[in-house]
Design a protein around this nucleic acid. Structure first.
Lengths: 218, 218
DNA sequence: TCCACGGGTATTGTCGACAGTCGACGGGCG
DNA sequence: CGCCCGTCGACTGTCGACAATACCCGTGGA
């Protein structure tokens, strides 16, 4: 049996993930002060890894430092959604096009698995998770580390916006599951076939679709 | 006389800037191990702010953490330039278009001043500094904090690439000064007049110009 | 009643210290 | 002669501590 190399986990990375999830989940409402001692106490660690996590999150736009070093959960409004989707429309078509040029087998297989999971997503949360993972997967399939860094800036912003708007997608989620799966499916097909022009367009259209869906909620 | 609020400078931010400049300046060749104790000793501070600076720089693609937490200066090759310019062609036209929609007076004035400085730039280094500041200024003028975060990922990458390629722009710098100033000038004019369509195109063209200039050097 | 003031509290930025881990190096053994 | 192992040094990840600073709140005085 092949021994897999053990992955080294640092508290800081773990905390980054946990905080990220907690913020998106709405555990910390917009404007909440995230004091380091408070988080450290709750997490049962010292301030050092918490601090590192907050710095990391600040570069992803999930927390903001004020002029005195205190970090808070940013408060997203209507124009933030426009901003976020605008940036995603700049990043994601590029990622899709690069992925189509690259055609990395492993990445494509991962997208394939994701697509399968999307098609049978049972809950709204599950669908949202699949959708997020698909878009992240496309960026990863692009093979550009730098694009991956840019992606982190917007990766969870729409989720955060939805949480803060409290307009959970629950209501219209079932009816978008099939269209989501369909869009992802044809985009993946374009990537797999290496048609970068088409991949670019499809990614753009897919985002425009989301834009239409989310616009009324704003 | 209006007393300006004193800006609190943290060692970490200061170190981030210093390291960034040092890396771009080529003080640390590609692949150099940036050990925290070494940097702390040289800077006369403890490891804590150095660590924070390295984390910040890693999100900007100026240092890379390997699987064991050691940070090194990334080694940029030919395809990195393609990657970088590709991302910039996604980000900057958007920034220019947003800036044109926004037309922020202060930001425009800053760009104006920068343009004036560009026109009289005497040395290659000075021109490079002006050019960098102009592009950063456009992103700032877009008013999007998130776009600003993305921008940081590519902000100094071309400079780093040039440093590592050792093909200093010295040679053909004088002759690009005027074309740079001209390109910036018409872009700024488009932004000021609020023509976002044109601003988008001009930003793209300006980058394509750079692409043509840098391609042979690769 | 309202404002100025001062102590107490909480938080940030920075520091030094320690444990765990890894690579380099040299000595002993087959 | 080559391989293995133990030791040493260096570095990272994490911790607790301290000074500086800003806020909160109760108190005293006008």
């Amino acid at each position: 049996m092949p021994l897999n190399p053990v992955r080294r986990v640092s508290l800081a990375h773990d905390i980054t993930d946990q905080l990220s999830r907690a913020i998106v989940a709405g555990d910390f409402p917009a404007g909440t002060l995230l004091s380091e001692p408070m988080l450290a106490r709750r997490l049962g660690v010292s301030r050092a890894p918490v601090r590192e996590a907050l710095i990391e999150l600040s570069t992803r736009g999930m927390v903001e430092f004020d002029d005195r070093g205190r970090s808070r959960v940013p408060s997203l409004g209507h124009d933030d959604l426009v901003d976020i989707l605008g940036i995603r429309m700049a990043i994601e078509p590029l990622a899709a096009a690069l992925a189509a040029r690259r055609r990395d087998g492993a990445a494509l297989a991962e997208l394939e698995r994701n697509l399968a999971a999307t098609r049978v997503a049972a809950s709204a949360a599950e669908l949202a998770a699949c959708d997020g993972a698909f878009h992240s997967g496309v960026v990863r399939a692009s093979g550009s580390r730098r694009l991956g860094l840019c992606w982190k800036v917007v990766e969870h912003q729409v989720d955060l916006w939805l949480t803060q708007m409290q307009s959970r997608v629950e209501s219209f989620c079932e009816k978008v599951r099939d269209t989501t799966a369909a869009s992802h499916g044809i985009l993946l097909e374009a990537i797999r076939s290496g048609d970068h022009r088409r991949a670019d367009t499809l990614a753009r259209d897919h985002l425009a679709e989301w834009q239409r869906i989310l616009a009324p909620a704003a």
